[in-house]
Simulated assay, not measured.
Amino acid sequence: MNELIPHLTVFLLVLVRVSAFFVTVPFFSYRTIPAQVKITLALVLAWMMYYTLDVEPFVFNDEYILLVMKEALVGLLLGLVGYIIMSAIQIAGSFIDFQMGFAIANIIDPQTGAQSPLIGQFFNMLAFLLLLAIDGHHMILNGIYYSYQLLPMDQFPQFAKESYIQFIITTFTAVFAIAFQMAAPVVATLFLVDLALGITAKTVPQLNIFVVGFPIKIGVSFLVMFTMIAVMIQVIQKLITIMIYGIRDLMAVLGGG
């Protein structure tokens, strides 16, 4: 019976990292998942991970409080990196909505509770289904499980290293590059449509170009997205892969790798 009851000091550290990870990481942090399910999953996962760790019990003192704060920070950072990378979908949707004229019609994203563009919401749901289809949620759980190999429980992260700053710059660059790749077909096509409408407005002044141009731009945008949907799915799948690798690379950087 004693073997089934973990040491409280070690179990608490595992639970803090897993719980903080679930607060920010995509899919597990969505509001549509009940809080009771998140808490239960964090408890069960922390209890299972405890028996895979070869760590001596800690003593309740000032250093242990610092370890608890460190575990919470590490869990939040790992999940936040995944959220930032997946936010490229929202950025791409904002680019497209701005060109289509849908920027004034943002809606509430039920997953995150934040304002979301219409096309970005469509891409977000597509990424959510694709994440489940390729077992991305299992890879996310693998990330928090193997985080103890790259960043042990009794080791503090290294934020002052040059590789940490380089990782942040590289991550943000990749996010905007992928967002531009997703939005480029629609944005480039709408630029040509705007150019054609501008020429039409000069040649036919009697035509109300604002009334005619709005439905034309919407129709062309949906046609381009329907044509390029296969490419966009591949880009979203690449984005999910980058998210998994980004979480792993952050663990390696914080662990001194």
Rank of each mutant, 00 (worst) to 15 (best):
G257I: 03
S19I: 00
A20M: 02
Q234R: 14
F214S: 14
P110E: 01
A92R: 02
V14Y: 02
T173Q: 10
M48H: 14
L131T: 04
F123K: 08
G198N: 09
T32M: 05
Y164C: 06
Y83V: 01
F58K: 09
T241M: 06
R248L: 10
K161I: 05
I5S: 10
I236D: 05
F159R: 07
K70F: 06
P117D: 09
V193A: 12
M86G: 01
A188H: 13
V253E: 09
I119G: 03
G82C: 05
L132G: 15
Q181M: 10
G82S: 03
I89F: 08
Y245M: 10
D135W: 09
L195T: 11
F102K: 01
Q158N: 15
V74E: 00
G82H: 03
F102Q: 00
D54R: 13
N124T: 07
P26A: 01
Q206L: 05
Q36K: 15
I84K: 09
L195F: 13
L53E: 07
G246Y: 00
V193Q: 06
G143S: 15
M125W: 06
N61I: 02
E3S: 12
V18M: 06
G198D: 00
G143P: 01
E63F: 10
G219I: 05
F180D: 11
V193K: 08
V23I: 04
I96V: 11
S29R: 04
P117Y: 07
F22T: 00
E3C: 12
M69K: 13
G113S: 04
L195N: 11
A174G: 13
I209N: 02
L239Y: 06
D194G: 14
F95W: 05
S147A: 15
L254T: 00
G101Y: 01
D194M: 09
K238A: 11
A133M: 08
Q90F: 07
A183S: 15
Q206C: 03
I244Q: 00
M153L: 15
A230Y: 14
L250Q: 01
V68P: 08
D54N: 15
M49F: 07
A174H: 09
M49A: 04
I178G: 05
V204A: 13
M251L: 07
D109H: 06
D135H: 14
N124G: 15
T200G: 11
R17N: 02
V37P: 09
N61G: 14
L4E: 07
